[in-house]
Nucleic acid binder design. Structure first.
Length: 817
RNA sequence: GCGAAAGUGGCGGAAUUGGUAGACGCGCGGGAUUUAGGAUCCCGUGGCUUCGUGCCGUGGGGGUUCGAGUCCCCCCUUUCGCACCA
């Protein structure tokens, strides 16, 4: 390695030295008193990891380093930066892995946490290890359970039987969010539908607010959009179609449909129920029960993958039942088809094949009537439909509404339906209630006791936590019942209300509940009698900056917003959005392709850190590309930042007491300005490039640096290479940590400007020469100097000069015709 | 299918309100130093070229402009979201 023998840069020695220093002095930790009295609190949050057995991967390190750079920058600006770290250690991941290797998660997790902690210390993050959380610690999940009870006691948690997504491989229920294109997010197994009693949080009650607040928070655009789409607000109407018998008499039942186009109701020529719709049985004619049940059966067996595949060939069967179109009074057939999803709206639709592509396709396949009720500019009421027409126009074949323009028809037809009692305007959301129960072992038990007489009763707060017992046989089975249901000694209890024999809830809660509030806990881990201290919370929250992956754009981020909103409504908090600023970082790929275990191209960080040091690794990761876009990791590329840090170290250490060269000094000030602007913009790659450029200027031609030229570079590089910066700071004669105090350098605007500038000289927009002029040279001077250039004069002779454009400090362009 | 973003050297990536395209780094080439080096340091590096700061160059084709990687229109490709949402 480099010239260690002459006191050169030895990363491992420097890093070990300063990590020890930080630990001993508590450089990065807050005491309770410091938390309570911080003058310039800045809460710098990053997404806590799931502590896998493999250890930290490059993606984690990339994310944490990017956030740490942000935190260290603010600290050097004089802020009191609180940067905690913890472990999201419950959940199916850990449990499945534990099952696979035959170790109990209660044994596995602590060693993983220990390994992660070691690695996290090694990368030099500014973590406050005195305020860490581990979601599997009863001292933590006691309060997760408390949060459940807050919702339960206020009618926001309810248990209901519901069709749920069941992963036959993980043997558990999945939230809709965990189903990707019909397959389990974790294991890729096609998901089945089951009906199981589940606990739900009524997040849909908050849909409007969760959507509306998106206007006011400073988040990455992509994340905002993802949430917006996920909530999926649409406006339309709910309409009721009365079911009629063979004689055309109403049976008293009606089918509710949700539509965004109630104005096309005159064109509804049939109805479609989802195969799971509760009224299917009632409307089905005895003569066709066999084919209807056969269809339902196939649909149920068809997993969501097949059902949602891009192959959208429509299938369905008539039920033999009919209902009346309340607008036209006509009798229309009721079909069932799997293109109607039970999940959305009411699970039933009025089919308007003339003006809906899906309905058109279905009607064409089954020869159902297609009626035009909207005429485009070139159509009349009888223009045949070759395909569904979804454009603008006016209503036709729509009784009293003929000629109404579609811009106002929705409103008018809805009002008419309401007047006659068969419909009303309705806002619909794609968002579903949050299913929080899991039929698994590795999670916090849901703190409820089931009593035959009293129903579900919440566990009293002073009885928390409901401790997860150590169960050796924690393997899930296909019954859909949690492993805890096999532990009679644990679930048998008495009802807190009436004292009768009762049974504990044996489901555990979703890990997204654990992570929905962890950032509230960090600053309050000094208190074990409350989840979060009101005064400290007031001082530190909402979070100032949250930097994390966009894979949590809808799941974690939406749930935590919801929980915070609820806690605010219940009077526990005085803010309702947890994160003022959220920035999504990009992903690291390797040599053009995704990193994955199956490709065998994952980067193992430990040996890289050992060879090059954490500072180099951090700097390289941040140099790869724009932080918010990710980067392409090429093993060779680390040589660049490695050499840079070595040169920087040698240059600073070898600097002599001499006056700064004015040209170099100007470059230094320009660099201070660039880095100061680019770090908060997360443009880390260009900030590093600017420092490299500056160092190249300082060292150009092998010159020796003056101390005044290099001093500012030490704090500038500190967010990226904190250990080396500490070492250089000390060698420059300073006391204490560079991070204790506002040591970020200021630039002098007067020293930024060049005395002479290079001006491009163009003729008809083509570069013909460059000239050097004084920065405040008059236009006259510049132009005449430009004209005097031989290579310019040559072109000017060829024609008449029509115009001269002068952009001060930039260029002169002669327009010759 | 819908939506969003992006296409720049051999590669990762830079380029204020339109104003010298290719910063910085990898790789490559040359040189220095060294017993040696895959170490270190300096210099060079878009293509073509009749070597003339000459021509061509930011996915393709048009347009606006004195001037376009940047703005407008059409097309192609890639990536990422959402995917029968009624």
């Amino acid at each position: 390695m480099a010239n260690e023998e002459n006191g050169g840069y030895d990363p491992s020695a420097v890093e070990e030295k300063w990590q020890r220093y930080w630990n001993e002095r508590g450089t990065n930790t807050f005491t309770r008193n410091e938390l309570e009295n911080a003058e310039a609190p800045y809460y710098n949050l990053m997404m806590f990891p799931y502590p896998s057995a493999e250890g930290l991967h490059v993606g984690n390190i990339y994310a944490f380093t990017g956030a740490d750079v942000h935190g260290r920058y603010h600290r050097l600006q004089g802020k009191d930066v609180f940067e905690p770290m913890g472990f999201d250690a419950f959940g199916i991941h850990s449990e499945n892995f534990a099952l696979k290797i035959g170790t109990h998660p209660m044994d596995l997790i602590p060693s993983n946490v220990e390994n992660f902690t070691r690695q996290l210390r090694r990368i030099g993050g500014m973590f406050d290890w005195d305020h860490s959380v581990d979601t599997t610690d009863p001292a933590y999940y006691k309060w997760t359970q408390w949060i459940f009870l807050q919702l339960f006691d206020n009618g926001l948690a309810e248990r209901k039987e519901a069709p749920v997504n069941w992963c036959p491989s993980c043997m558990t229920v999945l939230a809709n969010e965990q189903v990707i294109a019909g397959a389990c997010e974790r294991c890729g197994t096609p998901v089945e539908q089951r009906r199981i009693a589940q606990w739900f949080f009524k997040i849909t009650d908050y849909a409007e607010r969760l959507l509306g607040n998106l206007e006011d928070i400073d988040w990455s655009d992509t994340t905002l959009k993802a949430q917006h789409n996920w909530i999926g607000r649409s406006t339309g109407a709910q309409l009721r179609f009365p079911v009629v018998d063979a004689d055309g008499n109403e049976t008293g039942t009606s089918i509710e449909v949700y539509t965004t186009r109630p104005d096309t109701v005159f064109g509804a020529s049939y109805m479609v129920l989802s195969p799971e719709h509760p009224l299917v049985d009632e409307v089905t004619d005895d003569g066709v029960r066999a084919p209807v049940y056969a269809y339902i059966d196939t649909a149920a067996k068809k997993d969501l993958v097949a059902r949602q595949k891009t192959d959208k060939t429509k299938t369905g069967v008539p039920t033999g039942g009919y209902c009346r179109n309340p607008a036209t009074g006509e009798r229309i057939p009721i079909w069932i088809a799997d293109y109607v999803l039970m999940d959305y709206g009411t699970g039933a639709i009025m089919a308007v094949p003339g003006h809906d592509e899906r309905d058109f396709e279905f009607a064409s396949a089954f020869d159902l009537p297609i009626v035009r009720v909207v005429a485009g500019p070139d159509d009349d009421a009888d223009t045949p439909l070759e395909e569904a027409y979804v454009g603008p126009g006016r209503l036709v074949n729509s009784g009293p509404f003929d000629d109404t323009h579609v811009s106002e028809s929705v409103e008018k037809v809805t009002a008419w339906a309401e007047e006659h009692g068969w419909g009303e305007a309705k806002v619909n959301f794609r968002l579903h209630d949050w299913c929080i129960s899991r039929q698994r072992y590795w999670g916090p038990p849901i703190p409820v006791i089931h009593c035959d007489a009293c129903g579900p009763v919440g566990v009293a707060e002073d009885q928390l936590p409901v401790v997860l017992p150590r169960v050796e046989d924690f393997k899930p089975d296909d019954t859909g019942v949690s492993p805890l249901a096999r532990v009679e000694s644990w679930y048998q209890t008495t009802c807190p209300k009436c004292g009768a024999d009762a049974r504990r809830e044996t489901d555990v809660s979703d890990t997204f509940l654990d992570s929905s509030w962890y950032f509230l806990r960090y600053p309050s881990t000094d208190f074990d009698d409350r989840p979060f201290d009101p005064e400290i919370t007031k001082k530190w929250l909402p979070v100032d900056a949250y930097i994390g992956g966009n894979e949590h754009a809808v799941l974690h981020l939406l749930y935590s917003r919801f929980i915070i909103m609820v806690l605010k409504d219940l009077g526990h908090l005085d803010f309702e959005e947890p994160y003022d600023v959220f920035r999504a970082h990009g992903l690291i790929i390797r040599e053009g392709s995704k990193m994955s275990k199956s490709r065998g191209n994952v980067i193992v960080p430990d040996p890289i850190i050992e060879e090059f040091g954490a500072d180099t690794f951090r700097t390289y990761l941040m140099f790869l590309g724009p932080f918010e876009e990710g980067g392409d990791y090429r093993p060779q590329g680390i040589q660049g930042p490695y050499g840079f840090l070595h040169r920087l170290f040698d240059t600073v250490v070898g600097a002599v007491d001499a006056a700064a060269d004015p040209d170099v000094e100007r470059k230094v000030h320009q660099t201070i300005r660039q880095v100061t602007e680019q770090i908060p913009a997360l443009s880390y790659n260009t900030a590093i490039a600017a420092m490299m450029e500056c160092l190249n200027v300082i060292r150009a031609g092998g010159r020796t640096a003056a101390r005044a030229e290099v001093e500012a570079l030490v704090p500038l590089v500190a967010p990226f290479a904190p250990h080396m910066a500490e070492e250089l700071w000390e060698r420059l004669g300073h006391e204490g940590s560079i991070f204790d105090g506002a040591h970020w350098p200021a630039f002098d605007p007067a020293k930024l400007v060049e005395s002479t500038v290079e001006i491009a000289v163009q003729v008809n927009g083509k570069l013909r020469a460059t000239i050097s002029v004084a920065k405040d040279a008059s236009e006259e001077n510049v132009v005449s100097l430009a004209r005097g250039e031989e290579n310019v004069a040559r072109y000017l002779e060829d024609g008449t000069e029509r115009r001269v454009i002068h952009v001060p400090g930039r260029l002169v362009n002669f327009v010759v015709g």
